[in-house]
Design a protein around this nucleic acid. Structure first.
Lengths: 238, 238
DNA sequence: CGGAGCGTTGAGACTTTTCAACTTCCGTGG
DNA sequence: CCACGGAAGTTGAAAAGTCTCAACGCTCCG
């Protein structure tokens, strides 16, 4: 069930890798054009709808992927259903876990998503022959770890208003936005924001309403946010 | 000030690497005996007392190290003083951040500590020549990330009793203990436990007292813990 | 028009923090 | 040997923050 989508559509034609939107940002960035064949041979382009489960925690970790477009969430769940988003993936990010037999996390598409999918074993084999690629992945893993630790400080020590302010500023920074547009579209609903921040959906809603009333933000649409007073938000975020 | 200790005592004599307690567990594990010279040439053995600051957040990240013996904490701090421990380091773990110019975290000795210290640049240069070492570090970084994400779920979603139970079981698993000893010595006081779990010292104290009264644990000394009912603790931890 | 999915709002319950006082442990010095 | 003093831990009461449960509103789509 969880990998049904794998067979859904076809690989990309040879040569397309070089023109790929993630050519400069994914693992591929550590491969010269001439070397790309090794990756292209094992990769397959996939388009997935929002809500699609890409990897399911507990399943055998058979695949990895390069995120070309869209946003994914990485989720951990308690046995009783409480869930915490432990990572958000943006274009260029690596999807899935290397060197692991059983997936620790569930990965789900938040928006429509474009992936370049590799069988994990095959990808590991290619990497073993390309030290530059492993070096790049090491640097990224360490950067992700540093980022994750910042997130931990927020989860462990901050109150709801600080969490929300930091989150909105973070999204503002990470999300592409149409030029000249003062607002941006959140890639998720209130429930997922709660899962990111370790809050309930009601607390998220109340805090956003409070910020709106305080004139710090505007909410022109369900998922649309406009930061009216970045300085004040930054002050709240700490 | 923060690196004053660097000059405090001398390097280890050549050849001692092979007999080092961390020979099989540190980065060194990915080096054959014949290759160890490259590492030995740049490493210096250091003994530090509890409380010693090894790395200070914000300083230029000039050194990395291999933890040979003892326990270190990795801390993130808010401007207002709130602190969150984001990692605990045990023998064999890597200390410090590679490929980073400015340290993100503060690293402090919790117990007496034995380190094998390397200048960061020199270590990076050695690693660049040893793909097996980078592969090992990549695997470890990914494992640490997975572990850290488990910790995030705890910070974001669990209540104090669940946090404490999980913490005590975790320490029980990770800490060496004298054989036949049913109890173990925590490597930190109540305040640091609070910093690990995102709780105040009072909440930690109350929860431990409650567990003692419930007959789940015994507390024979300030830092000594004896798990009387692991099954019940595991049930609480979830 | 009706229903489903999301989001918002309110009231009360529950958990954790805060602040303050008190105790215990332990090393030092009289 | 005991008194003292500091550090660490414990306990209590009140306050603050967040969650839970329940109801209501909005919007999109069939």
């Amino acid at each position: 069930m969880s990998t049904r989508w794998l067979a859904a559509n076809d690989g990309c034609p040879p040569g397309r890798c070089i023109a790929c939107a993630a050519r400069e940002s994914g693992v591929c960035a550590s491969f010269a054009d001439e070397e790309l064949g090794a990756l292209h041979a094992i990769g397959r382009k996939r388009l997935l709808p929002p809500g699609q489960v890409v990897i399911s925690a507990g399943d055998s970790a058979a695949i990895c992927a390069n995120l070309v477009a869209g946003v994914l969430k990485v989720v951990r769940e308690e046995a009783d259903g409480r869930a915490q988003i432990v990572g958000l993936l943006f274009p260029g990010d690596m999807v899935g876990e290397l060197f692991v037999e059983e997936a620790n996390d569930t990965v789900v598409a938040l928006s429509a998503v474009e992936l370049c999918v590799y069988p994990r074993r095959a990808l590991e084999a290619v990497l073993a022959r390309h030290p530059a690629a492993e070096n790049l992945l090491l640097r990224r893993a360490l950067a992700t770890l540093a980022e994750t630790r910042r997130w931990m400080l927020m989860l462990g020590r901050r109150h709801a208003p600080e969490k929300l302010a930091a989150f909105l500023l973070d999204m503002d920074r990470r999300l592409d936005r149409a030029e000249g547009d003062e607002s941006y579209e959140l890639p998720m609903g209130r429930a997922a924001i709660g899962e990111v921040l370790g809050l309930t959906i009601e607390t998220v809603s109340r805090q956003m309403t409070a910020m709106k009333r305080a004139g710090l933000i505007a909410l022109p649409g369900l998922r649309r946010v406009c930061l009216l007073d970045r300085a004040a938000l930054a002050r709240i975020a700490g």
